[in-house]
Amino acid sequence: MSWRNRDLCLEMVAKLKPLLTRARLIITRKVEWASIMFAYAQETRYIIKDPRTPRRKTPVGLIREKSNVILRQLLWTRRPFVAEFTDARGNEIFTVRRPFRWINSSIYAEVDGKEVGVVHSRWHLWRRNYDLYLGNRQFAVVENPGFWSWSFALFDEDDNLVAIIDRKVRGVGWECMQHFTNASQYEVRFGDAGKGTDKVFCFAKDMDNDLRVFLPLDLPERAVALALAVSLDHDCFSRRRLGWVLRLLGA
């Protein structure tokens, strides 16, 4: 499917614009109490907020997983699922679809059932590598060093930084709760569109330096980046019954 078809592209942009023109998004996974108390795998739920809006506590979007209850218990993080991105009123914006996987995962971003792009993971013993595609064109790559690195930088084919997905560290208390509840939180930084110019800039904190980076991502590409955020949560940070044994097998 060629997303560059003009009518199709305009239709996609109209649906994605209310959520994905924002420079920053905070994605918080809800606590799964049944999983804590009974080891029962629930459908995941997320709240999306914009930290730059005056009403920071009001969600600008929601993410809701739909999956088979039996497959969730048997396959856990390898289960197939569809997740709907909606606005705060429940109106669908786009969906992501992740088929069953054994080692390498793939997750597809779709608008009205039409595929926009896909994220494929590449297995490595400790690194977390991902390739992002829009149609047949690869527009970004992630090569995270693994271990305790919780920042996932997206680079284009010219090694330009185009977006950052950070798992936010919120103190010892929150981290202890996250360990037992999967209540992870992520920040996705896209950048601001410069007024009077076609350039887009993103400000990102990297160690001791503030970085100003050029950002050419359009709205369909941002949808694929959000699909990556969902995949990262399942691939890297969801609690597993078999722990690091599965990690060595490509979890």
Rank of each mutant, 00 (worst) to 15 (best):
W3T: 13
C9M: 07
E11S: 14
M12H: 05
M12G: 02
M12I: 03
A14G: 08
K17Y: 10
L20M: 08
L20P: 04
T21N: 05
A23R: 11
A23S: 15
L25D: 03
L25G: 01
T28C: 15
K30R: 12
W33G: 04
A34L: 13
Y40F: 12
Q42E: 15
I47S: 12
I48P: 09
R52A: 13
P54V: 01
K57T: 01
P59K: 05
L62G: 02
R64A: 14
R64V: 13
E65Y: 07
S67E: 09
I70K: 01
I70N: 00
Q73V: 06
T77S: 13
R78S: 13
R79Y: 03
P80M: 03
F81W: 09
E84S: 14
N91K: 11
F94Y: 13
V96D: 05
R97L: 09
R97Q: 15
R98L: 10
P99I: 09
F100E: 04
I107V: 13
V111N: 07
G113R: 10
G113D: 11
W123Q: 05
L125V: 12
R127D: 04
N129Q: 07
L132Y: 00
L132F: 01
L134V: 06
Q138Y: 00
Q138L: 00
F147S: 09
F147C: 12
S149F: 14
W150M: 12
S151W: 03
A153S: 11
L161S: 07
A163H: 03
D166H: 09
R167Q: 09
R170Y: 03
G173L: 02
E175G: 00
E175H: 00
M177G: 02
H179L: 15
A183Y: 02
E187I: 02
F190A: 07
G191C: 05
G194S: 00
V200E: 09
C202D: 11
A204T: 12
K205P: 05
L211V: 14
R212S: 11
L219Y: 08
A227L: 08
L228C: 06
A229N: 14
D233E: 10
W244N: 13
L246N: 12
R247M: 03
G250W: 06
A251H: 13
A251F: 13
